[in-house]
Each structure stands twice: as C-alpha cells, then as structure tokens.
C-alpha cells in the first residue's frame, strides 16, 4: 500500500529537500475559516498537513493548542465535522497528505472500525494519536494499518535504543521525533541534540524522520530541517491565527492570511535547508 504520505516523501527525496509539516486545529476558529486555512497551507509551501482533532483534555499540549481545541469545540466542532472538513479539502487537492493528530477518546467513542472506513473515504492518510503507545497497538494502530492508513508514531528523548524497535515496529509513513521532553509550545528545540537523535533513530529505520515541538521561526525550521527529513510547526501558526482574531475570538479578514504568511516564511526556511544525509 502506498499512501499520499509515502508518495510525497519519495518526491521530496528526489528533489533533495526536507518536508515542511504544518499543524493546525480542525475547526479553529470556525469550520469555514478552518477550511480556507488548510486550503491555503499547500499554496504557501506546506508539504504535509497535520490536522488536530479537538479534545477537551489534551494532556500533551501547551496553552496555545489547548485554547485552539477549545475554540473549535465552542463552535460545535466534532470528529465527524473534522472528517467533513477533509472531504471538502480533497475536492481541490488530491496530493497533499493529511494526518489527523490528537487523542484516542473521540475515535474510540466514534467507533474504531467505522472511523477507519470514514477517515479513509474522506481522504485521510495517517494518524498520530498521542495517548496510544505501542503497548496499546491492538486498539487502533493495527486496525489502521489494515485499513490502509499510516500510523505515525512519536519517538521522544526518553525512547532509548532498547525501546526504539518496539516504537518503530508498526510505524509507517514517517516517524515523528518529539524534540523535547515536554508539551507543545514549550522549550525551543536544540539543533545539535536533534541531529544526534535523528541519526540514532535512522540506525533503526528507513522511514523518513520529521522533527517537531519547539520550532517557531524560519531559522529554527531551517536548522532542524537540515538534520531531518522534515520539520513540524504547530504552536507558532496557531499563535499567528489567535493574534488575528477579534476580541470575541472570531475570525477577521486577516485570519487566513496571517497563517498563510507565516507558513510561507517558514517554508522558505525549510527549503533553504539541505536534506539530511541518508
């Protein structure tokens, strides 16, 4: 099985550059604006889109992403509406990979089998579920693989060489290296430490390794992207979105552009980086 994720990373490898992966929250600040934002991302240089599934209790996220999820929930976002959003996006874009990222409970309540069918049909390519470590692979990871969706695992600074094989065993698409021990939006990632960690992971897998958490500026993005197959930015984009909202937390005429402009600047940074040596 080849997903849009596999195809995209193969293309990037040929082009000799790293991927720019963007994270935004589905339905933030409202479903219509959110659709415009995700449509603008590829046009501004995003290679892969991670779409957050709003959840009331995001235990690995910092204040920015927590608030984004709550904004989306407040306007009535649900998992079903997140799938609708992707379906609408796919009308004009059948190439940009979409990865849903979030927590397990909404999927568990939706029903795993039904979710996998509906997600695949909507045009989703992969899943990152923060609270499903390999110890819980029976829940969603193995069924997702069978359904033709990539299950992208997080590796962290605490994932040592002994544990890495278990973490990588059922991972596909790419590996997401969490550059810090911490929540989203906290400390800045250190390029030197990241470079060592990516090299360590690459000793165990042929999959592309993307790095996220703590990347905020085009300079950060360039530094990190030169040591990895991709750089992920989330909190910085969400902060740009938030700063464009009116006092009531509603979208303004500036909202879509605010995200698009920062995306373009970050994409320039990533594109300035040479692809890490294989």
């Amino acid at each position: 099985m080849t997903t849009r994720i596999d195809t995209r990373f193969a293309e990037l490898k040929k082009a000799g550059r790293s991927a720019f992966v963007t994270f935004v929250m589905a339905g933030d600040p409202d479903p219509a604006t959110s659709l415009e934002i995700i449509k603008a991302l590829p046009k501004s240089g995003a290679d892969v889109i991670e779409l957050g599934m709003p959840f009331t209790d995001p235990m690995a996220d910092g204040p920015s992403i927590q608030a984004a999820g709550l904004r989306a929930l407040k306007v009535g976002m649900t998992l079903r509406k997140t799938l609708d959003l992707v379906r609408d996006f796919r009308r004009d874009d059948n190439a940009t990979p979409i990865v849903l990222m979030g927590y397990y409970n909404p999927i568990y309540i939706y029903g795993v089998d039904k979710f996998l069918v509906d997600a695949k049909a909507a045009g989703i390519d992969g899943l990152i579920i923060v609270d499903l470590p390999p110890e819980e692979d029976d829940e969603l990871c193995l069924p997702a693989m069978k359904a033709g969706l990539n299950f992208i695992r997080l590796a962290t600074p605490t994932t040592d060489d002994k544990r890495l094989p278990a973490v990588l065993a059922n991972t596909s698409g790419f590996v997401y290296y969490v550059a810090i021990t911490g929540i989203t939006g906290a400390a800045a990632a250190d390029a030197t430490a990241v470079s060592g960690a990516v090299a360590r992971i690459k000793r165990h897998t042929k999959l592309p390794v993307c790095v996220g958490f703590g990347i905020r500026t085009p300079e950060n993005a360039q530094a990190i992207a030169s040591h990895a197959n991709g750089a992920v930015v989330g909190t910085a984009l969400i902060d740009a979105l938030k700063n464009s909202l009116d006092a009531g937390g509603r979208a303004t005429a500036k909202t879509v552009n605010a995200v698009a402009e920062l995306t373009a600047a970050l994409a320039q940074g990533v594109k300035g980086a040479k692809q890490a040596a294989e």
Binding site: A60, P133, E135, E136, T158, T159, V178
Partner: peptide, 20 residues
C-alpha cells in the same frame, strides 16, 4: 500483565512517559 481489568485499565499515555 498489561494492566487490564476486563476491558478497563491499560496504559494510554504519551510515549515520553512510557519508559518511566
């Protein structure tokens, strides 16, 4: 051994915490 009482329990945590 996986921490289940029937279908309940388990270890639904971020990878960062799993080794600990």
């Amino acid at each position: 051994e996986r921490g289940h009482f029937g279908i309940f329990g388990g270890r639904f945590v971020a990878e960062t915490l799993m080794p600990l």
